[in-house]
Structures are given as structure tokens and as C-alpha cells.
Nucleic acid binder design. Structure first.
Length: 313
DNA sequence: CGTGCACCCTAGGACCAGGA
DNA sequence: TCCTGGTCCTAGGGTGCACG
């Protein structure tokens, strides 16, 4: 069984959505450049994807990858809803050999608590290639809404289409999570981890020492390092650095404060060390970052404001 | 602001205790 | 016996300082 992981902050874009009544043309192999989600309205649907033959019944869903060849492996059949969409970043195929339970546990409990600007810390959703949603009538209804929006486009219909697609993906991911995780109680260390993240988020601009964190959580710092690394995949120090540099970038863009003042504001006792850390994480020094931003701002793009300049976040 | 260096603190692994 | 929470130990990475 194939599974895919999709970043919780992925940009989903619906390209097309229709109800397809199966006709003889479906015997001819076809492929398209986008992801395609199929949901059977009238069964059966005899569909072959690559070498795999499926007989889908009402309510069954199947996810096809871009350029994946598919066709009817025998004549006849009913109809299915389909939606084509793009995703940025792309969906990742998960090796069938992986332990799905631990993977879901990690996805369910990990880095989504971290408050940084990078997409890699967004929670991931795991969805199966082939599934029958428990809320199938809600899914069918959602497909009907999408097709209606597509047939009579008005107002912000494209935005509503994308929301519908996100809902279909969410239902699929929630189903899988419920099925696999129903008998698993999350360990107490998750609670400690959540409280730790909360403390880091609130105090990253102040002096945040190992001793003070130990006091606040009444746990050995070594243990806190362990669970933080376990659930987030990064170290406490790196996370604090990311939060501080994120704030530094904002101050460099939006204020006239000197690099030294910003360093002190972010509890860097040594401005030189601040520059070094900034360069390590961002690839350029604070002053270069500010210069680059100013250059972009005055490069003639009238829509570029301080709050919207790209490539610098 | 970049680089080199020395020192110290952090993080990871080993280990233990307790509970199921 | 396995799993989870927690502690101890130590290698090496992080940090701060000096200098160009």
C-alpha cells in the first residue's frame, strides 16, 4: 500500500474538476501533468494505473501522481468525480516498508508546535493512495460543490475550490490517523515537550538559560534536550537561534536600528557572535541582508512593500 | 565583518528504575 | 521483557574573545 505525506502549508491549486461518465474512450491510456484525485460516484470503476488493476466501488478514492498513465482495464462501469491539482512542495511517496504507526505518531506530535517561518516545521499529513473515507457522503458532497463552482465560476470560486480540495485531503488524513492511532495513548513526555516549546516561544528574546528552563519545568535539562530533539528533530539551541534570527530579520527590514542594537535586543551579549550566527543560518551577514532588501525595495517593483518582499524570508 | 583559537556547556548515548 | 521517564557522563560543537 502506498502512502503520501503532504506538508501542512503546501500551496494546493485546483486545475480542473469534473464528473466523468465512463465511455469507451477510457480504454485508451491517458496521463496528465497534475495530481488527480478520483472518487467513485457510481460503481464499479475498472481502472488500471501502471501495472496495478483496481476495481473501485462507490465512495472509493484513488490518488494519481503527475503523468501516471491510467485507463479502464475492461469496458463498462459507472462514473467518478475527479479533481486535478498541483502542490508546492510536492507530495512525498512514503516507503511501504516504513512503520506507519510510528510515522503517524511523529507527524501527529512533532514539530508543528515550533514557531519558525520555515515550511519544514509545518505539520505533515499522511494520506493513502487508495482509501474509502468514513465520511464518504461529505466527500461526495464536497466534490459536488467543486463541480458546481467549476461550472458556474463567480467571485472567489478558485479560492473556494482550493479550500474544498484541502478539506478532502484533511478528511483522508484524519481517517487514517484515527484508524491507526485509536488505541495509542500519547506519552506524558509530549506534554512536557509542548510546555517546553511554549516557554521557548515566550522567552526567546530574554535570557533563556538551561538553569532557568530546568527551574520552570522541574526537569533535568539533559532530559528536555532529549525529548525536544526526539519530537522536533532539531536542538533547543538551534530552535532558539531560528526564533531570534527570524525576529532579527524583521527588525532589519522594518526598523533603522543598528546591527549592534538588534543583537542586544535579542540577548546576544556579543554583536560579533550575532553576525556570525546570522550568517550561519541565512547565508549572508545582517548588514548585507538589509542592503539586499533595500536594493530589492528600490528595484522598481511597485507592489513590493517591506512586508511582502520575497526570497528574504 | 571574517578568522582562528581556547574553553565550556550542550546534547547524545548509556544506563537505571518503575510500571504494564 | 518491553516501554517510558529520568539521570549521569563525556565528546565535541557552540561560544566568546583577540586580532587583522
Amino acid at each position: 500500500m502506498d502512502y503520501f505525506s503532504i506538508n501542512g502549508l503546501s500551496r494546493l491549486d485546483v486545475k480542473w474538476s469534473r464528473l466523468y461518465n465512463i465511455d469507451p474512450n477510457f480504454l485508451i491510456p491517458r496521463a496528465n501533468p497534475h495530481y488527480e484525485l478520483i472518487m467513485v460516484a457510481d460503481s464499479p470503476v475498472f481502472i488500471q494505473v501502471g501495472q496495478e488493476k483496481y476495481t473501485l466501488n462507490g465512495g472509493d478514492c484513488l490518488l494519481l501522481l503527475p503523468w501516471e498513465e491510467h485507463f479502464a482495464w475492461k469496458p463498462g462501469g459507472g462514473s467518478f468525480f475527479w479533481v486535478q491539482f498541483s502542490s508546492d512542495p510536492s507530495l512525498e511517496l512514503i516507503d511501504a516498508g516504513d512503520n506507519l504507526t510510528s510515522l503517524l505518531k511523529i507527524c501527529h506530535t512533532s514539530s508543528n508546535f515550533l514557531r519558525t517561518s520555515t515550511n519544514e516545521h509545518a505539520g505533515k499529513l499522511i494520506i493513502p493512495r487508495l482509501y474509502t473515507p468514513s465520511r464518504r457522503y461529505e466527500c461526495l458532497h464536497t466534490f459536488e460543490i467543486m463541480i458546481n463552482e467549476f461550472n458556474k465560476p463567480k467571485g472567489y470560486y478558485h479560492y473556494r475550490l482550493n479550500r474544498c480540495l484541502a478539506k478532502l485531503i484533511e478528511i483522508s488524513a484524519e481517517d487514517l490517523l484515527d484508524k491507526v492511532m485509536s488505541d495509542i495513548n500519547l506519552p506524558a513526555s509530549i506534554i512536557t515537550y509542548q510546555r517546553l516549546v511554549e516557554i521557548l516561544n515566550e522567552s526567546y528574546m530574554l535570557e533563556c538559560t538551561a538553569a532557568s528552563i530546568e527551574r520552570m519545568l522541574d526537569r533535568k535539562y539533559e532530559y528536555l534536550c532529549n525529548i525536544f530533539k526526539k519530537y522536533s528533530g532539531i536542538t533547543i539551541n538551534l530552535y532558539l537561534q531560528q526564533l531570534r534570527i527570524q525576529r532579527a530579520k524583521y527588525l532589519l527590514r522594518e526598523t533603522e536600528k543598528s546591527v549592534q542594537d538588534i543583537a542586544f535586543e535579542l540577548s546576544f551579549e556579543n554583536p560579533l557572535y550575532f553576525s556570525k550566527t546570522f550568517k550561519k543560518l541565512e547565508g549572508l551577514s545582517p548588514s548585507h541582508y538589509r542592503d539586499k532588501f533595500q536594493t530589492l525595495l528600490s528595484a522598481g517593483n511597485p507592489s513590493l512593500t517591506k512586508a511582502t518582499a520575497p526570497n528574504l524570508y
